Amino acid sequence: MIIGVPKEIKNHEYRVGMVPASVREVINHGHEVIVETNAGIGIGFTDQDYVDAGAKIINQASDVFAQAEMIVKVKEPQAVERAMLREDQVLFTYLHLAPDLPQTEDLIKSKAICIAYETVTDDFGGLPLLAPMSEVAGRMSIQAGAQALEKSNAGRGMLLGGVPGVEPAKVVIIGGGMVGNNAAQMAVGMGADVVVLDRNTNVLRKLDAQFGNKIKAIYSTADALEKHVLDADLVIGGVLIPGAAAPKLVTKEHIKSMKPGAAIVDVAIDQGGCIETSKATTHAEPTYIVDDVVHYCVANMPGAVPRTSTFALNNATLPYILQIANKGHVQALLDNKHLLNGLNVIDGQVTCQSVAENLGFEYVDPAVALIN
Rank of each mutant, 00 (worst) to 15 (best):
P319R: 11
L97Q: 13
E87S: 15
A332K: 05
D123E: 15
L95E: 09
Q48T: 12
T281Q: 05
K73L: 08
E69S: 12
K111C: 12
M186V: 06
A268W: 07
K327H: 13
G175I: 07
D223E: 15
G125S: 12
H329Y: 15
I3Y: 00
P306N: 11
E25K: 14
L130S: 06
Q60M: 05
K256L: 08
M18K: 03
G189R: 02
N336E: 10
T221S: 15
L197C: 11
D231T: 02
G42P: 02
A61W: 05
V345P: 04
Y288E: 09
N344H: 06
K170H: 12
F311N: 03
I43T: 01
I2T: 00
G17H: 11
Q48S: 13
A246C: 04
K256S: 12
L230K: 09
G125I: 12
V90Q: 07
M18Y: 00
I264M: 14
F92E: 03
Q143A: 13
V330E: 15
T308E: 08
D270W: 02
N300K: 06
S278A: 14
K227H: 04
K206W: 05
I255S: 05
P128G: 13
K252E: 14
D335N: 15
A244F: 02
Y288L: 12
A79M: 04
A262E: 08
I41K: 14
D231R: 08
S220L: 15
A304W: 06
E76W: 05
K75D: 00
A21F: 09
A131C: 08
H283S: 00
V345E: 02
I269R: 05
L230R: 03
M301T: 07
G54C: 09
A83V: 12
G243I: 01
L127I: 12
Y296L: 06
